[in-house]
């Protein structure tokens, strides 16, 4: 079943007379519970795709259906509600609030999301149950990224959007984070969408989407994706 459907979606940025078509009549269908990797060079439109799917922006043309609901015409407040309920974000920078402890950073979403999961359970799931009272500055980069994943998951979203989630991590820590994300798809049935430059990550994906010049160049399903350990990092 398609959890996400892009129909003729375009996003045009205008600056005076200059017009930039970041996405150009994109059509796309993404299945639920899949581990999806979006590849493409800088400026290809990956981030625009993620912004539209994440409810951070509205398309100029076309419709975006998420679980059967059109999100392309939602107002700013409706998009905020959509983000609170349906999508979680993980970025290259961890974006944790420095004045809050690990558990407080995760529990933050409990006051925002309509159906949150236990903060303790999420931290346990990412292997940080022993660090709940520490502050972000006391954790390593990999640990901070795991906190940000726990925070994204604690909202209990249908889709987890990850923008270069391993970009700031060494390969060893990156593998740990990718394993964690993969298990979220396999064990929790979440749809994980990763935007990256890293071709290796694509080897473990169920679906690989290549974007270039604002268009979908290819959308391939991989019948037998590699396990994280099989990939040569």
């Amino acid at each position: 079943m398609a959890i996400v459907e892009f129909k003729e979606v375009s996003r045009v940025y205008r600056n005076g007379d200059h017009e930039q078509r970041a996405l150009d009549r994109v059509n796309l269908q993404l299945e639920e519970g899949k581990f999806i990797v979006i590849l493409g060079p800088s400026g290809a439109g990956k981030s625009t795709l993620l912004n539209l799917l994440g409810g951070l922006d509205n398309p100029t043309e076309g419709t975006i259906m998420v679980k059967g609901r059109d999100i392309s015409t939602l107002s700013a407040n409706e998009l905020a509600d959509y983000r609170a309920a349906s999508v979680g974000f993980v970025f290259q920078s961890y974006n944790l609030i420095p004045t809050l402890t690990v558990i407080e950073n995760v529990a933050l979403v409990k006051e925002i999301a309509p159906k949150p999961l236990s903060s303790h359970d999420m931290l346990k799931a990412v292997g940080l149950a022993d660090h709940i009272h520490q502050f972000p500055s006391e954790l390593s980069g990999g640990e901070q990224q795991r906190v940000s994943i726990a925070r994204a998951l604690a909202k209990n979203p249908d889709i987890l959007l990850c923008d270069e989630p391993t970009g700031a991590l060494d390969s060893e820590t990156g593998v740990v984070v990718l394993k964690l994300l993969l298990s979220m798809a396999r064990e929790m049935g979440k749809t994980i969408i990763i935007v990256t430059h890293n071709q290796n990550i694509a080897k473990m994906a169920d679906v690989v989407i290549r974007v270039k010049n604002g268009k979908i160049q290819s959308c391939e399903e991989q019948a037998n994706p590699m396990s994280v350990d099989e990939v040569d990092w």
């Binding site: 994440g54 700013a76 905020a80 609170a84 309920a85 933050l108 925002i112 909202k155």
Partner: peptide, 15 residues
């Protein structure tokens, strides 16, 4: 701004 952007991303409305 980063902290506020994080909260916005989590679904906090402007208001």
């Amino acid at each position: 701004k980063k902290e506020f952007a994080t909260l916005r991303l989590c679904g906090l409305s402007r208001g």
